[in-house]
C-alpha cells in the first residue's frame, strides 16, 4: 500500500471530503458559535455582546424546561430502548415462522419521515381524536392527556421516538448477535450453562461494543428530535413540551432572536458532543479491559 501513498494521491483522496466538510460543516459550526455572541435578531444588524445570550438563557425558565424534557426523553429512550431492542433481537433469533418478514416490518418505522411519524402519532395520542383514548375511554378509563397536558408529553415523545427507532436498534443488535462466534456459544452450553447464565456471562459481555454503538446512535438521535414535537404539540402548552432543539427553533425562527437561538444551538452541540465522547471513552475502556 505504501507504494500508492504518495502525498499527492492522499491529497486527491482526502481533499474533496475535507473541503466540503470544512465548508459546509465545520465552518458553519464556528459561524453559528460566533453568532451566539451577538444580539442578532429580527431584521437588524448584529452587534457583539459577549456571553450575554448565555446568561439570559440561565434566567429563562423555558430553556430549563426544554433541557429537562430532553433529558427525560433521553433517559426514557435509552433506558427502555437499549434493553428492549436487545431483547427483541434475542426474540427474533428464535425459530419463528416468517422471522425475516417480522424483522423487516419492525425496521419499517425507521424509514418513515419523522415529519410523517409526527403526523401519524397525532392521530394516536391526541386526547380527543386519538386511537389510544378511543380504545381506553370505552373501558371506563378517564380521558388521558397523552400530548398537550402538563406532564405526559415528553414521555409520549419518548414513546414515539422509541417506536421509530426500535427496529433500527434491534437490527443492529441482531446483526451483532449474528457475529458472535458459534463455537463459543456452543462450548458454553456444552459446559452446562443455563440459558440465563449464557445470556448474562457470555452473550452480554460479548455484545458490549454493540451496546455502545446502539447507545451512541440513539443518544445523538435524541438530540435531533424536532419534527415530532413540531407535529405533536408545537411545543405547547406554553413551551411545556419543548425539547432543546424545538425551543431553539422557536427562539431562532419564530421569535427571530438569532443570537439567543444560536446560543441554545451551541449548548445542544456541547451536550451532544459530551455524551458521545463519554460513550466513546466507556466503549474504549470496555474494549481494553
Amino acid at each position: 500500500m505504501i507504494w500508492l501513498s504518495s502525498r499527492s494521491r492522499i491529497a486527491v483522496m482526502v481533499l474533496p471530503a475535507l473541503v466540503l466538510f470544512t465548508a459546509f460543516f465545520a465552518y458553519p459550526v464556528l459561524y453559528g458559535t460566533g453568532y451566539s455572541l451577538t444580539d442578532a435578531q429580527g431584521f437588524s444588524e448584529p452587534r457583539l455582546i459577549g456571553l450575554d445570550n448565555y446568561a439570559t438563557l440561565g434566567d429563562d425558565p423555558f430553556f430549563w424546561l426544554s433541557l429537562k424534557n430532553t433529558v427525560i426523553i433521553l433517559v426514557v429512550s435509552v433506558a427502555f430502548l437499549v434493553p428492549a431492542s436487545f431483547a427483541l433481537a434475542l426474540l427474533m433469533q428464535q425459530r419463528i415462522r416468517a422471522a425475516g418478514a417480522l424483522r423487516a416490518l419492525l425496521f419499517g418505522p425507521a424509514i418513515v419521515a419523522p415529519i410523517l411519524v409526527g403526523l401519524v402519532w397525532v392521530f394516536i395520542l391526541d386526547p380527543r381524536v386519538g386511537l389510544l383514548n378511543r380504545l381506553l375511554v370505552p373501558l371506563g378509563i378517564p380521558e388521558i392527556q397523552w400530548i398537550g397536558g402538563d406532564s405526559l408529553t415528553p414521555y409520549s415523545i419518548a414513546l414515539v421516538f422509541s417506536w421509530a427507532s426500535i427496529g433500527f436498534a434491534m437490527t443492529i443488535f441482531y446483526a451483532g448477535l449474528q457475529q458472535l462466534p458459534g463455537d463459543v456459544m456452543e462450548a458454553s452450553s456444552l459446559d452446562g450453562a443455563t440459558r440465563w447464565q449464557q445470556l448474562l456471562h457470555v452473550t452480554v459481555p460479548m455484545m458490549r461494543e454493540t451496546v455502545g454503538i446502539v447507545s451512541i446512535l440513539l443518544v445523538t438521535n435524541v438530540f435531533k428530535i424536532f419534527e415530532l414535537v413540531y407535529m405533536l404539540t408545537g411545543g405547547g402548552p406554553v413551551h411545556r413540551s419543548e425539547t432543546l432543539v424545538s425551543y431553539m427553533y422557536f427562539v431562532t425562527f419564530t421569535s427571530q432572536r438569532y443570537g439567543s437561538g444560536m446560543a441554545i444551538a451551541v449548548v445542544v452541540l456541547v451536550l451532544g458532543a459530551l455524551t458521545s465522547l463519554a460513550y466513546l471513552v466507556l466503549a474504549r475502556r470496555g474494549r481494553s479491559a
Binding site: 429580527g42 405547547g236 402548552p237 406554553v238 413551551h239 419564530t254 421569535s255 427571530q256
Partner: peptide, 21 residues
C-alpha cells in the same frame, strides 16, 4: 412590539387559559 415580545404576550394569555401560569 417585536415578534419575541408578541409571542410572550400570546404565551402569557394561553398560559393562564391552560392553567400553566
Amino acid at each position: 412590539f417585536p415578534v419575541a415580545v408578541a409571542n410572550a404576550i400570546y404565551d402569557s394569555i394561553y398560559g393562564v387559559i391552560q392553567d400553566q401560569l
